[in-house]
């Protein structure tokens, strides 16, 4: 038996941690929504500004989970947290921008190209947090609770102590992101299909 010990959601308007609204977008701000959230985090990581929306989203939500659940920082060895992420459209946002750079500007941008892989967000999380664990990024037609349930159980039974999971659907500037942290021990939401679907907002 494992537990979802913390989770968070991000849409274009709001950000929730463990179901509680923690921030709402200031539509009058000059800053992008992700930049607004970044500024509230009290961290200084200039590399954030180089990241694409997919990586920025994964980064911000991971920081929020770390604040909500100190186990993510304290309870595990550097290779014990597995990263299991998925989405529907891979790195489409960066793909479109990169394609524009060579089709319209005749100058392919290497800074955009390096973000045209969906797993780059996992690399960004690993670099910032010094995590050397297992990584996997899958592309699925929709959020599939059973995919996470099945593969996290595999990861937790083969050496990983916990799993940071994410569904990062980002396309046409629409953000629908859900991150959750699964541990072998804990309390609250049991890690099963029903509770995962419920927390994801599907039922």
């Amino acid at each position: 038996m494992s537990f979802i010990t913390s989770y968070c959601h991000l849409t274009n308007k709001s950000c929730f941690v463990n179901g509680q609204l923690i921030a709402a977008r200031d539509t009058d701000s000059q800053d992008s929504w992700l930049k607004q959230l970044y500024k509230e985090q009290e961290i200084v990581y200039p590399k954030f500004y180089k990241m694409d929306t997919l990586s920025q989203t994964g980064f911000i939500l991971t920081e929020l989970l770390k604040k909500a659940n100190s186990n993510i920082i304290n309870a595990y060895q550097d290779d014990e947290i597995a990263l299991l992420f998925a989405n529907r459209f891979s790195s489409v946002d960066s793909d479109v921008r990169f394609k524009r750079s060579y089709q319209e500007q005749a100058s392919p941008s290497p800074a955009l190209f390096v973000y045209t892989l969906p797993n780059i967000v996992l690399g960004e999380l690993a670099i910032y947090n010094k995590w050397y664990g297992e990584n996997m990024f899958a592309v699925l037609p929709k959020f599939a609770a059973d995919f996470y349930i099945n593969y996290v159980e595999i990861l937790l039974s083969t050496g990983s102590g916990a799993s940071l999971c994410g569904w990062l659907d980002i396309a046409d500037e629409k953000i629908d992101a859900f991150l959750f942290f699964v541990e072998k021990e804990g309390k609250g939401n049991q890690f099963n299909i029903e509770s995962l679907q419920k927390l994801a907002g599907l039922i």
């Binding site: 990024f137 899958a138 699925l140 099945n150 593969y151």
Partner: peptide, 23 residues
């Protein structure tokens, strides 16, 4: 399931297949 992890995707997918079966 599409596994898209840059250049390690293939090895990762074979390992994932074995993991699904072992489980």
């Amino acid at each position: 399931v599409v596994i898209s992890n840059a250049c390690i995707s293939g090895v990762l997918a074979i390992n994932a297949g074995a993991n699904f079966i072992s489980a």
